[in-house]
């Protein structure tokens, strides 16, 4: 029923590993805005996602995690979708605004965002179907 504190710490460690990796890369490539945002994210993550002294994560913490995930998804996916739309918005010539010139990379970014948005939609649909079947049972059951 409960997530073990070991699993919780593993997830936390993986997230910290990602943040540190991005920090190192950003410093290496002199992407200072990314460095600042990464440091800020790291501080926020370490401040809020701290562990407690228990040897498990109880049901209220799981509910909080579920709600946090729900909020994250419902904010992140539309943001990604709207950004994709603006980056790939076609003009009267049928091409994207950013399909030529110095901002060509923005169109590529739009395509990547589009793939990510579609991937999220597929993941959500898959898990929705899976969980509906898991908890819903068969229709002929009484």
């Amino acid at each position: 029923m409960f997530m073990s504190i070991k699993k919780y710490k593993q997830i936390r460690l993986a997230t910290l590993f990602f943040i540190i990796s991005i920090l190192l890369v950003s410093v290496l490539f002199k992407l200072y805005l990314l460095t600042i945002i990464t440091v800020f994210t790291g501080i926020v993550f370490l401040s809020f996602a701290h562990t407690n002294n228990q040897n498990y994560v109880d049901e209220m913490q799981l509910t909080i995690q579920e709600k946090a995930t729900d909020f994250t998804y419902s904010i992140f996916t539309p943001t990604l979708a709207i950004t994709t739309f603006f980056l790939l918005i076609p003009t009267h010539s049928g091409l994207s605004v950013f399909s030529k010139g110095d901002f060509l990379f923005l169109e590529t970014l739009g395509v990547i965002f589009a793939y990510l948005t579609l991937f999220q939609i597929i993941l959500y649909s898959f898990f929705f179907l899976y969980l509906s079947k898991k908890f819903g049972g068969k229709q002929d059951e009484e």
């Binding site: 407690n52 049901e59 209220m60 913490q61």
Partner: peptide, 22 residues
Amino acid sequence: LGVSRQTIIAIESSRYLPSITL
């Protein structure tokens, strides 16, 4: 009960509705 003190506080103040098992 095998839960955190925060959970007890939240239940007592009716801010958190426990699962049927709890």
